[in-house]
Write a protein that binds this DNA or RNA. Structure first.
Lengths: 113, 113
DNA sequence: GAAAAGAGCAACCTATGGGTTGCGTTTCGC
DNA sequence: GCGAAACGCAACCCATAGGTTGCTCTTTTC
């Protein structure tokens, strides 16, 4: 494939990386990973910030397609989006392959880390 | 391993994700991937911004350990940091494994995407 | 040795990200 | 039906990320 094509695909990943580029959001993702679907108040417990801040982070993750929410009674329950996350994984794998290829090429050029 | 341990490791990755969370920086990484070590003017060619802006992005990537530079005569040449990038790959793989485990668990709970 | 190429430094500007607070609205529990 | 719980909405605040411009300094080049 041409470099520009793989580059375009790489750049599409920017919003996802950006969404994951915040400790608070990574914490939320981690909790949804280990604890399953949770409401906002649940997610706010243990987080060192207000419910509104948590909500904003959740919508940021949602915009990147990483999580998904649904109203349930007076609660809104958030959970990971498996399919989307698998897509991203494949994306990362693809990037990794390109990196590997690039690194191999670079190792031929120079031999330091 | 305990959830808090894997969570701590995940959160350490935040600065790296943040560094990659910008289209301009992903473009720079991509170019260093496909074209090898490049000077600042080279990297500025084709980029829709000033040399200073490119420089700032390069130092952002450098702070995350993704690239590395060296003065060569009147030029400063930037390149990827293979070892560091491999570390990050292993990191991503680890995160992927955790995600897979979590997704398996979630699939047991609910059957939608 | 003078001009030009390549960078570094610093000041500055603006939009936005991350956070808060206050208040209104819906839903649950008794 | 009434209070409390869970949330949505909106305004606001502040730091900083991302970008520019202008000037200086060093290194090539001819």
């Amino acid at each position: 494939m041409r470099a520009s094509a793989s580059q375009a695909r790489l750049i599409e990943a920017a919003p996802v990386f950006a969404a994951l580029g915040d400790p608070a959001r990574l914490t939320l993702v981690s909790r949804l990973c280990s604890e399953g679907p949770l409401s906002i108040v649940r997610l706010t417990e243990g987080a060192r910030m207000s419910r509104q801040a948590v909500t904003k982070h959740l919508y940021a993750l949602s915009d990147a397609g990483l999580v998904h929410s649904e109203r349930s009674g007076r609660e809104r329950v958030w959970q990971l989006r498996p399919r989307r996350i698998e897509e991203i994984r494949r994306h990362l794998d693809q990037i990794s392959l390109q990196w590997d290829a690039a690194l191999d090429r670079l190792r031929v050029l120079v031999e330091d880390g």
